[in-house]
């Protein structure tokens, strides 16, 4: 089975990787400046940014970049948010309060603790009233998010925004999820057309582990650090830093192989 898909836009948000251009530079060997100010985009007001949970800031930035690059209004796409751990700062807060003084639980923090908080804020922030979902595939959340996207591409004329992210843990959960760097990448996909695209891909189910792609150590370390960064080889393919087919695997069920579609 092959599924053809056009990549119309990409966004990235991680320390030292403020956007697609800085990722492309990093693939070419530029150092990652982790002190660099985060790219906040324009969709969240300064006030909302102060109040927003960190996963919202992380995902808004990447998702907005992908829409801007594609020239597509952010309320238009179907949106799929996929993350292994969601908002770990809020779950640390919740579990601590529940252990000590449960009656003190903050109602705002509670409703922000849902797995679909980032996707919910996206819908509210950009006014998107279509189908927006929040998935989890554990450490395979990138694969799972992309399988969902590929299952939609043939059945809709709408673009599909896929946002893959994982934040870092705080508190005792760090022992179980020791990532040091948050990571988010957003892909804006559409069914194949004759129009120009950033990259035209052919996807197929495979049973293999993740591909490795030669990349500078600072980037390769991010893949080890955070499961969301397992998207980096695919981003290398989309950015033209490799020509080889790329596999994203999964512990259970199929993975996906992506290759450049020759026209």
């Amino acid at each position: 089975m092959n599924i053809d898909v056009d990549v119309l836009g990409v966004g990235v948000c991680a320390p030292g990787l403020a956007d697609w251009n800085s990722l492309m530079a990093a693939f070419s060997g530029a150092e990652l400046d982790t002190d660099q100010a985060a790219n906040h985009g324009t969709l969240l007001s300064a006030r909302d940014r102060r109040r927003a949970p960190s996963t919202v800031k992380l995902t808004f930035s990447a998702a907005e970049q992908a829409c801007v690059m594609a020239g597509i209004a952010p309320d238009e796409p179907i949106a799929i948010f996929s993350t292994s751990m969601g908002d770990m700062a809020i779950s640390d807060y919740m579990c601590q309060v529940l252990a000590e003084s449960p009656q003190q639980l903050s109602p705002t923090r509670f409703h922000n603790s849902v797995h679909n908080a980032a996707s919910g804020y996206w819908s509210i922030g950009v006014g998107a009233k279509g189908d927006i979902t929040a998935l989890c595939g554990g450490v395979d959340s990138a694969t799972v998010g992309l399988i969902d996207a590929l299952s939609r591409i043939g059945g809709t004329t709408k673009p599909v925004l896929v946002v893959i992210y994982d934040d870092i843990a705080v508190g005792p959960m760090r022992e179980l999820f020791p990532a040091n760097y948050p990571f988010c990448a957003a892909l804006l996909l559409s069914r194949p057309t004759t129009a120009a695209a950033l990259m035209k891909l052919r996807a197929s189910p495979v049973r293999r582990q993740d591909s490795t792609v030669a990349m500078p150590p600072a980037l390769a370390q991010r893949i080890e650090d955070n499961p969301a960064a397992r998207l980096l080889p695919l981003l290398a393919l989309i950015g033209g830093h490799t020509d080889a087919p790329i596999t994203l695997g999964a512990e259970q069920g199929p993975g996906i192989e992506f290759r450049r579609r020759m026209l």
């Binding site: 679909n116 929040a134 595939g137 554990g138 179980l176 069920g253």
Partner: peptide, 29 residues
């Protein structure tokens, strides 16, 4: 490690039932 991720439900059901297709957790409240 598995239990603290939302995926613990779908991955468990797939494991118990011996399913090997895509395994997805949907968590939209």
């Amino acid at each position: 490690p598995r239990v603290h991720s939302q995926h613990v439900s779908a991955s468990f059901v797939a494991e118990v039932l011996g399913l090997d297709g895509p395994v997805l957790t949907v968590s939209t409240a």
